[in-house]
């Protein structure tokens, strides 16, 4: 089993970013992990599988360059290469956008697998941004993936949905699932008004791969269309660590007790100027 995984890693790895609940940060996570891997010199293809409600293109700042999309590829209206948008800021980073004017039934899991097989030949990492929900969009997104990043926030509703998603991934034969806890507020955890990362891990019982602090810089970076991974902001650092862990390196978790208050204050001052 170990062997199989290490071999897989040498080839290409297909990772689905999923959560069940909407608005917990799947797209932001996809964008940052993908960009981070590209910054580390990997060839990365991001695929937006949310047909009808595409957003990854906007978060990546590539919305003006879309010509063809995933549905065009599946329907044979264009070749796979034609639908790939190259991110000029990072060599090796490509985005396959989703269709905005179609719905989830336009693609089947079998077709997704085919597209991914073609992409595997040229990419180290293929990252699939999964839509919210557990219907066909979810089935499409997980069909060709061999590991999953489950994103949740420390809230009852998001954790409940994450638990459901983990159950579905297990039922679909996923062996590697890692948890990202997004929007953690250390000040609230200290007060006893928010579940800590450990609480969430205890409940979901899935290995933790990242804790992303609640950071206003995420909103700013989305406004600008440039993922903040690798930057000085707390979330940027946290995502950089996630990227390293995705690559298989062991990185200690950030100390947010210091990090969050100090950095948000400092960056807050800078942004005011």
């Amino acid at each position: 089993m170990e062997n199989q995984f290490s071999q897989e890693r040498k080839g290409s790895e297909v990772i689905v970013v999923t959560s069940g609940k909407g608005g917990v940060g799947k797209t932001t996570t996809s964008a940052n992990v993908g960009t981070g891997l590209a910054k580390a010199g990997k060839k990365v293809c991001l695929i937006d599988t949310d047909i009808g409600l595409r957003n990854l293109d906007v978060v990546m700042g590539l919305e003006n360059r879309i010509v063809y999309n995933l549905v065009d590829v599946v329907e044979g209206s264009c070749r796979v290469k034609q639908a790939l948008i190259r991110d000029k800021r990072h060599p090796g980073l490509y985005l396959m956008p989703s269709a905005q004017t179609r719905d989830k039934s336009a693609v089947t899991p079998g077709q997704m697998v085919k597209v991914i097989e073609t992409l595997k030949e040229q990419f180290d990492y293929i990252i699939l941004d999964c839509p919210a929900g557990i219907e066909q969009g979810f089935q499409n997104a997980i069909a060709g993936a061999d590991r999953a990043l489950v994103v949740t926030t420390p809230e009852v509703s998001a954790i409940r949905d994450a638990d459901r998603i983990i159950g579905l991934l297990e039922a679909n034969g996923f062996k590697q699932m890692d948890l990202i806890i997004n929007r953690l507020r250390m000040d609230m955890v200290k007060r006893g008004d928010m579940m800590s990362a450990q609480d969430v891990v205890d409940i979901l019982a899935v290995p933790l791969i990242g804790i992303i602090p609640d950071d206003e810089n995420v909103v700013i970076s989305t406004n600008q269309g440039e993922p903040l991974v690798g930057g000085a902001s707390p979330a940027g650092q946290a995502y950089a660590n996630v990227v390293q862990r995705v690559e298989g390196r062991e990185v200690p978790f950030l100390n947010f007790e210091k990090g969050i208050s100090f950095w948000t204050r400092v960056s807050g001052i800078f942004h005011k100027i």
């Binding site: 009852v156 954790i159 006893g192 008004d193 800590s196």
Partner: peptide, 13 residues
């Protein structure tokens, strides 16, 4: 604490 309430609710849920 509201954190404890959340944990208790989740456990049952």
């Amino acid at each position: 604490s509201s954190c404890q309430i959340a944990k208790d609710r989740l456990k049952i849920l």
